[in-house]
């Protein structure tokens, strides 16, 4: 009990004192996570809209597949990306293994199905209301999708948030492809795992507190946006 109290005090001092190691790890975490979520949104939003509005063979199968991929085990994704990027792998020549880019790739693979599946649901629901209107106006499929994506922009924040939550909390995949190298690929989750295993609870706790705080702050901000939009009847 005493040790935990001491660890909390030490964590507090690290945070308040802007410990350079801590700041570096937080910076890299945010860089990797936000980049991955941004890229996943660029892929997932249109993919979800195509699955919601498009009419093509195998659409049902694709919907089931994307839904199933929401539960991808991170370590399996990590292993897959590792095999692709390792020296003997097909993309080994790119020398991306144990770099932040490799971590972003792994997280994009994990997060994209979540964003695409949730987007499909949001767009499909909204299209029930919009479909007749847009068709009567002569809007083509692409125009219909763009209209729906824009009008669903606040609702889609929830999809992005779900992806962000997954990316922020993820440890298995980034550990495998990033290697948890100090000052290179060490992020909050991998650092917490490492420091805990070393018995360095202060840094681990500090990172844990910041990870929680970041997650709550990002969620609260985006939910605030959504509430405002709903109040203005835009959502």
């Amino acid at each position: 009990m005493l040790e935990i109290g001491t660890a909390f005090r030490a964590a507090f001092n690290l945070i308040v004192g802007f410990d350079p190691d801590l700041v570096e790890i937080i910076g890299l975490s945010l860089q990797v996570t936000l980049t991955a979520v941004f890229v996943a949104c660029l892929i997932g939003f249109p993919l979800g809209a195509v699955l919601a509005v498009g009419r093509f063979p195998m659409r049902g199968t694709l919907v089931v597949l994307v839904n199933a991929l929401m539960g991808l085990p991170p370590v399996v994704v990590g292993l897959g990306v590792y095999l692709m990027l390792s020296r003997a792998g097909p993309l080994g020549v790119l020398n991306l293994l144990y770099t932040p880019t490799a971590m972003v790739i792994a997280q994009v693979i994990l997060v994209t199905p979540i964003i695409a599946a949730l987007t499909r649901q949001v767009i499909e629901d909204m299209n029930l209301e919009y479909d007749e209107l847009l068709r009567s106006m002569g809007a083509g499929r692409l125009s219909q999708m763009l209209t729906l994506l824009w009008d669903a922009r606040y609702a889609l924040m929830t999809a992005a948030l779900a992806g962000l939550g997954r990316a922020l909390a993820e440890v298995g995949a980034v550990m495998i492809v990033g290697g948890n190298i100090n000052h290179v690929t060490r992020v909050m989750t991998t650092a917490i795992a490492l420091e805990t295993s070393k018995g360095e609870l202060a840094l681990a706790l500090g990172l844990g507190i910041i990870l929680m705080a970041l997650s709550i702050a990002l969620n609260a901000t985006l939910m605030g946006f959504r509430r405002t939009a709903e109040r203005l009847a835009y959502a």
Binding site: E129, Y130, E132, L133, L134, R135, S136, M137, G138, A139, S143, T147, D151, A152, Y154, A233, Y234, A235
Partner: peptide, 30 residues
């Protein structure tokens, strides 16, 4: 058809935009 045909429904379906935004969107689609 449908370029020269417009329909107004019993329950108006309006986009999640301002009045001006709805009209601007329609003009763009047209």
């Amino acid at each position: 058809a449908p370029l020269d045909v417009s329909i107004v429904f019993q329950r108006p379906v309006l986009l999640r935009r301002s009045v001006r935004g709805n009209l601007r969107h329609a003009l763009k689609v047209y």
